[in-house]
Design a protein around this nucleic acid. Structure first.
Lengths: 227, 227
DNA sequence: AAAAGTAATTATGAATTCAATATTCCTTTG
DNA sequence: CAAAGGAATATTGAATTCATAATTACTTTT
């Protein structure tokens, strides 16, 4: 375990704890022990506690007065709510992108799109998802709206640990690719309204929610055995 | 000045500092002195610094390594970006509200709407804005999406200190009222798509941005004399 | 033996202390 | 007199210490 010795310690610690949560080393509902994390990162309680406060406002953990912190348990509703929001933000990013994007940026996205199609034809799931993500990120960047990007990235962070890409059925996959064909067309026409609509309806998110339905606990607030 | 002696001290302090920023007692770009605020609130630096970290992640202040914190200077672009985002969120809140709202809730909003019309006919600007806000908040609540409400409230907080309602021209005002008529109709038909569209396009926000064009500084990052 | 109450331990909340960085003010030099 | 350098001061970053609340373990009682 590499000790931390960087400045802006609290932010570094927060990111590291975020990673632990994302990778499941800190389980949902698990009690977070300050002392344990202090030892692990080699920092004192002051920056660690600052990190906990920040993570709480970012929605990754929750603070229980006088009883420490624990990892937020994602409920199905919570994830659904978050994805609805992300879809709306993607829609906005599409609208704005059409208004700001340069020919060169469109060309770059077209490149990514073509690459993605190759991965689709080869049924290479992971590369497909990676390029897919790059496309959405490019559109988000082209929106030229910093606040939007910040919010999206926060929401994305919250649900990262339950994002699955495995159980993609052939039917959903082909539909997603069709969506992307329409997206490219709308983008190249710079049809703001249309691209916004497509992205809002893009079923990518809905697939994931459907997939998750079986995975996440429906309970809201039961406490759980800790480490 | 009432001293603070409550539990969850950092959150209380953060709220209080937020109030100071909102009311302009801490000016945009102004350097925030830890010691000064500690004395003012009667707390030690530990909870105060936790509060600063939280306010930074909430976007109200920015942290400069080894150089303390200062109040975020809102640029016109920043406010525009935020309002674009808020419009998208309002649109989503409308869509979702149509899917979840009860007859009783619709009736309550209709009540508010009628009250608002009275204030409009009497040209009572402040009461008009207050009821107007209540209507939008009711729709947001009816969306039944906690994450959405949290995000919206954060964005709202960020731009609160520059929200003006004064320079409302007759022409814009009548248009806003027409928008609200259409909103009520869409809501009572539970026409999700339509209400979403209306709310996204509702020019309320755009008016405010236009109004602000002259008020906010265009400079991005110049430092400013401190207290 | 089970439950309740109490002491001991542990963890959290907040203040203080120590260290490092930045700022201010004064001196010195061209 | 202006500019540069350096000491003194003030401010921030982080660790430690102190206080208080919660948890655990143990004892006592029924």
């Amino acid at each position: 375990m590499t000790k931390i010795l960087q400045r802006n310690l609290y932010r570094e610690v927060a990111d590291r704890i975020g990673d632990l949560i994302e990778h499941g080393e800190l389980a949902p509902g698990e009690r977070i022990s300050e002392k344990q994390l202090c030892d692990r990162f080699g920092v004192s309680r002051t920056p660690l506690r600052e990190a906990l406060k920040v993570l709480a406002t970012e929605g990754l953990i929750e603070l229980l007065p006088n009883r420490g912190a624990r990892v937020v348990r994602l409920t199905l509703k919570n994830v659904k709510d978050t994805y609805d929001l992300m879809a709306a933000l993607e829609g906005l990013s599409g609208e704005l992108a059409c208004q700001h994007i340069s020919d060169a940026e469109i060309a770059a996205i077209r490149q990514l799109h073509n690459t993605m199609l190759v991965h689709y034809r080869n049924r290479d799931l992971m590369p497909y998802f990676q390029v897919n993500r790059q496309i959405h990120e490019s559109i988000l960047a082209a929106s030229n709206n910093d606040v939007l990007q910040e919010m999206y990235s926060n929401l994305s962070q919250r649900v990262k640990r339950v994002r699955y890409s495995k159980q993609m059925t052939e039917r959903y996959w082909s539909q997603a690719v069709k969506d992307h064909e329409n997206m490219m067309a709308a983008l190249e026409k710079r049809d703001s309204q249309l691209l916004g609509q497509i992205l809002r309806d893009h079923l990518c998110n809905k697939i994931e929610v459907a997939t998750l339905a079986g995975v996440i606990d429906t309970e809201d607030d039961k406490s759980v055995a800790n480490s």
